[in-house]
């Protein structure tokens, strides 16, 4: 029976919280499981990523809102794209990151992955909500309706509910480990929705248009409209990364402060 300290999760997490030990097993994954190492690596980066996110988002959104040319047919409503499309991309890739954390949690009992999944949930849900709201605001003047139950819109709404369900589940148990286990299963099962979102506009007839930018073939967005889109996309990704890292870091610090206070109370109590 393999009883290496790395697989003994409860002890590992406890030790990681209090003593922030260096890697014990040879597994390379666990080199990054150490919250102390994570804090040393990431905390100095957070303000830089945060400021970069603020600057790039501002440039992208101001460019998109005020300077990007209007579409020949949609007019200025096309400017909603500079919020909607980056939000959709971040929402989907955020969920992909959450699903990877779930896998790391289920298989390798990676203590940092649980905290990461817990903290990325609300950020991803925010971007998914933004995607749905802006899509709706674009749909009213352009399609003639706020909402239709086509495959793309419905699958993104399901993504939103998956985020909300994950957020609720991971916080639902008195013992956080139970929440981490349950939420990791939900996170992995929900990943099946991602290819459905991406290909929904090709597999089925949908009211939603196909993808304007693909990895193969030229972009269907004119170059002067493409630049602000790419910039605000970069800004949104930076914002997601900065917020996720800061929240993970906060979670680790909160856990550690709690563990220290608990240890102190136990010492003075005995």
């Amino acid at each position: 029976m393999d009883r290496s300290p790395a697989t003994d999760y409860a002890a590992d997490a406890q030790a990681a919280m209090i003593a922030a030990p260096t890697s014990k097993s040879g597994a390379w994954l666990h080199r990054f499981a150490n919250p102390g190492r994570f804090q040393r690596l990431v905390q100095p980066l957070i303000p830089w990523i945060g400021w970069a996110a603020l600057i790039v988002c501002s440039v992208g959104l101001v460019w998109g809102f005020a300077f990007a040319p209007a579409d020949w047919q949609q007019g200025i409503a096309s400017r909603i794209m500079y919020v909607h499309v980056p939000a959709a991309w971040v929402a989907m890739n955020g969920y992909a990151a959450l699903a990877i954390c779930s896998l790391l949690s289920i298989v390798w009992r990676h203590p940092l992955a649980d905290i990461a999944a817990k903290e990325m949930g609300p950020v991803g849900a925010g971007f998914t909500g933004l995607c749905l709201i802006t899509g709706s605001l674009w749909g009213k003047p352009e399609w003639g309706t706020y909402w239709v139950w086509d495959a793309r819109l419905t699958s993104v709404l399901i993504l939103f509910f998956l985020y909300l369900g994950h957020m609720a589940l991971i916080r639902a148990f008195d013992n956080p480990q139970h929440g981490y286990r349950a939420a990791a299963i939900l996170g992995l099962v929900g990943a099946i929705n991602l290819p459905i979102i991406v290909f929904s506009v090709y597999w089925w007839n949908s009211l939603h248009q196909g993808n304007s930018i693909t990895l193969t073939g030229p972009s269907k967005i004119y170059v002067t409209m493409l630049y602000p889109l790419l910039i605000s996309t970069l800004g949104f990704y930076l914002a997601f990364i900065a917020m996720s890292l800061a929240r993970i870091s906060s979670g680790i610090m909160e856990n550690r402060a709690r563990a220290l206070l608990l240890a102190r109370a136990e010492r003075s109590g005995s």
Binding site: P69, A70, D71, W72, G144, L207, Q209, G210, S212, I221
Partner: peptide
């Protein structure tokens, strides 16, 4: 009873269209 507009994925300024 209802007509909805379905957009293409193309975005271009008016001068390009002209």
């Amino acid at each position: 009873s209802t007509v909805l507009a379905k957009h293409g994925a193309d975005y271009m300024p008016r001068d390009v269209e002209m």
